[in-house]
Amino acid sequence: MSETGNMNQNNLDKEMQQSQKAYEAQEYQQVVKRHSPRPKVLRNTIMAFVVGGTICAFAQVFRNLFLGAGLVEQDASAAVVMIMVFLGALLTGLGVYDNIVKVGGAGAIVPITGFANSIVAPALEFKREGFVYGVGARMFTIAGPVLVYGFLTSIIIGLLRFILG
């Protein structure tokens, strides 16, 4: 009887300690928040719009050129994607793309050039670890999750369409 009493008391103490610690962490977060510089949301948003828009405008130019050269719409789109992935990879290799993202943020991460950057950057970085454990294994460390959840989402949407439609 007394043993279970002790155990309950111990558990209670432990819980009290934990909640005290959580409370202190919360209080400290308030102090941290007070001194942390705010991200420049307006400037970042405008720059994302400008940089993202510029990348898309480039893609549109290529698309028009391909359509003008006589490619059908679907082929023109595929060709544009290839060109943009190539440009993203090239600019990453030249050490330029990370500077574009620094200014443009999501405007440069979301387009397919950013996807190319996320594959080429680790591939370059981990070349020292060899072509199998380095380039091969690390290439998709950042793009991998995008692919996994992209596929998963497309499967779910496909199933929904199959069931509902």
């Binding site: 991200p39 793309y97 990370d98 991460i109 950013g114 950057a121 970085e125």
Partner: peptide, 17 residues
Amino acid sequence: ERQYRFPVEQGVQRPMT
């Protein structure tokens, strides 16, 4: 960077902190 965060050429916007 490569151990703790991202590859050097990876495009990221570092927070102000």
